[in-house]
Design a binder for these strands. Sequence first.
DNA 1: TATGAATGAGTGTTCATTCAT
DNA 2: AATGAATGAACACTCATTCAT
Lengths: 212, 212, 212, 212
Amino acid sequence: MTQEKNATSKAEQIIESPEKTELILDAAVKVFADKGYYGARVSDIAQEAGIAYGLVYHYFKNKEDLLISIFKSRWGQFDQAVRTIMEEKDDPRLMISSIISFLFHSYKNNPKVIEVMILDVAKSTRFFNGENIKQFTDLFSLMSDIVLRGQEQGIFKKDLDAKLAAYCLYGSVERIMLRWLLEDKKIITDQEARSATEMVTTIILSGLEQNG
Amino acid sequence: MTQEKNATSKAEQIIESPEKTELILDAAVKVFADKGYYGARVSDIAQEAGIAYGLVYHYFKNKEDLLISIFKSRWGQFDQAVRTIMEEKDDPRLMISSIISFLFHSYKNNPKVIEVMILDVAKSTRFFNGENIKQFTDLFSLMSDIVLRGQEQGIFKKDLDAKLAAYCLYGSVERIMLRWLLEDKKIITDQEARSATEMVTTIILSGLEQNG
Amino acid sequence: MTQEKNATSKAEQIIESPEKTELILDAAVKVFADKGYYGARVSDIAQEAGIAYGLVYHYFKNKEDLLISIFKSRWGQFDQAVRTIMEEKDDPRLMISSIISFLFHSYKNNPKVIEVMILDVAKSTRFFNGENIKQFTDLFSLMSDIVLRGQEQGIFKKDLDAKLAAYCLYGSVERIMLRWLLEDKKIITDQEARSATEMVTTIILSGLEQNG
Amino acid sequence: MTQEKNATSKAEQIIESPEKTELILDAAVKVFADKGYYGARVSDIAQEAGIAYGLVYHYFKNKEDLLISIFKSRWGQFDQAVRTIMEEKDDPRLMISSIISFLFHSYKNNPKVIEVMILDVAKSTRFFNGENIKQFTDLFSLMSDIVLRGQEQGIFKKDLDAKLAAYCLYGSVERIMLRWLLEDKKIITDQEARSATEMVTTIILSGLEQNG
DNA sequence: TATGAATGAGTGTTCATTCAT
DNA sequence: AATGAATGAACACTCATTCAT
């Protein structure tokens, strides 16, 4: 019986839940982006998702859980992208330009997600418990590994702190996207994304490279 | 005795009355840094300042006004520093390294102010009005002027977007400071400040410079 | 037992759920009457109604909405009574005495409602927006129609302003009821209601009638 | 020395105080009329009077004292007018028409005072203390004395309750003035005041008179 | 799963009043 | 008398969360 129950609820989870979960999460992204985390009401999100607000609590523990879930999901995608890039590319320089490209194209595809990530998630140190902060810093370790690899290969300057370099890379991209957000430039063309990618890549790579 | 009393009360006056605004603002910085803007209660700030609840509202319109005032004051100081640097230095490279140095030493001297600026003010920039946005973007214009000047002098690469470069510069510094904040590394040594300055300067300047 | 429980809860349902609005409104009448609109706290009303604080705000927009709702409901009842009287009676004199009678008996049945209507609603011009004032003045138009009809039938003096006459009628009744309220004479007998009716009717009708 | 001080302050009281008291009271009437008692801030009144708000508390105990003072002063004027009318006129009918005339012309001359009396004072009569209640009801006794006198002289119907009759008289006038206030008709012509007087006088006197 | 009525802690803000000068 | 900084009690309203159905 317990099995049956589990089976049922599992089946339901598989069939129904994921969709509803995503539905709510997408609504949350939209509302958080528009009103900010604190300005957003759970009922706003439910309304945006077209469901009763009590239902949000079937899928998420509480309001904060929504934000954490957005972070995990989207940061996870970023993490996955970086790992794939590191596997598929050989040259650390190419890896870095690919990461920058990925970020700017993420903005192009869904600026609201970026807005929430930059303004509501990243600036909310007070949410970050151990687990989340690990997921966060792990990715920076990964990116600094790229720098390290470049240093080992004699491509990058050896006396740079790889970690700090990774933060410069990410911070540059982040600030540029934040600029767009504050200027209410939510829609960018593919050309703009590529142009920004090229520019930041130039600056960062020239900065990292063994003076050539 | 009367004299002494007068002297005392005069001293108190000097400390208290004229700077009551500063007293409250400093308390607000401390409380915002510790609890975040939304977690901070106005009563916390009053208590921290050692004054009565309602007095905050004699000096500030409301809670948000406190945050805006902190922004105006501190961003104004940054603005002033950049202007002074631009007047006193000749070489655009020196200007940039001075700005980076100023920022890291600001963190060293008063990390709480930086915390509020990076975490709380940044979040609310979304809802800034025109005047505040202007104060914000004006400074980036100023910094991009430095890049432009370097381009004119043939020091910096000509094909870089000066504005974006300014954002890379600021974003790099900000991200590194945010990293410290997230790692709860509130106290840094002068050595660390100088080291970070040197590193970011190296990356950014190498990135900007005409490959030499 | 289960049946009994169900029966009970059903009974409760009938009493509670559909009429929650009325429950709150009745509580508001009681508290407004005792403490005045400004002296009444929303929490007093919730407590009087035996419900949670915030529930008031599920049923009413805000405190003022409670007062407006009381006005609409009770003034609507008065309006309905006047219309019924005008349909059922032929003689304008009878209509007037019936209206006076209705008002005094309303006081007898629920002096608190009258108290709120006279002191908190009617004296709150500052609440009255267009819609409410219309509902208010419409009824006076209706009453002046009675006077007009009497004038057409040659029963009432032709040179009286019908509108002013309606205000005299209502004002006389209102002041007498207000006197009772200020003298803390909340409970009146049916005899007293009839006596007051007769007296005011005499004065007003003699005043209106073509001198006989 | 104490004497001198007293003398001084007495002298000041005599010379200065009364003017300032009136100044504040007039300002209070204006502000209460415009914003209502509860909507008026003591600082509004002080500003209207052109003084510092702390000074209000030198002349009045508190905000309520302002309202009570307005009541005492204006109701006292009404009381005085009634007494003068009763002394100077012989015919109770003339007394009544004179009272009605006085009230309507009071509105014409200073509608704001009437507004405060009808709207704000009336609401607070609920919470009046014995002394104020007495001042209030005494005047109605006085007016009912007029009716009694008319009944003794065989001019008015003998079976009418004189007190109730006085309330009808006052209530009629008050309601008409309230109507003007609700319709924002603050300015009336002398002609309108006389016309209203005549009309109410007609209704009330015909109602009171032994059918002739 | 789905609903939305019910709960009540939490807090920004107002403003009458006091009082040192 | 005059000022206005300082005080702090008071309260309407919000909204995340729970839970009966």
